[in-house]
């Protein structure tokens, strides 16, 4: 393959597939943060319930 084609292949791959990986990471990070926040909330509720019962 000639150099110009290799460079454009690298640019295309980095721009499109790299960009996709970046936004997928954002998506999974946000999902994880949301899940953790929900778990923290549930744990806090459980603790409050225990304290109320005792």
């Amino acid at each position: 393959m000639n150099t110009g084609a290799i460079v454009m292949l690298a640019i295309g791959a980095a721009g499109l597939w790299g960009g996709l990986v970046f936004f997928l990471r954002n998506y999974f990070k946000a999902e994880k943060a949301e899940r953790e926040a929900a778990e923290r909330g549930e744990a806090s509720d459980r603790e409050a319930n225990r304290e109320n019962q005792s």
Partner: peptide, 23 residues
């Protein structure tokens, strides 16, 4: 729903797919 991030994912997945198909 995270609309902006979803739009970037769909747009880039679509364009990344057609780039791969072109190869």
């Amino acid at each position: 729903s995270d609309l902006t991030n979803s739009a970037f994912i769909v747009g880039l997945a679509n364009c990344g797919f057609e780039f791969m198909a072109a190869l």
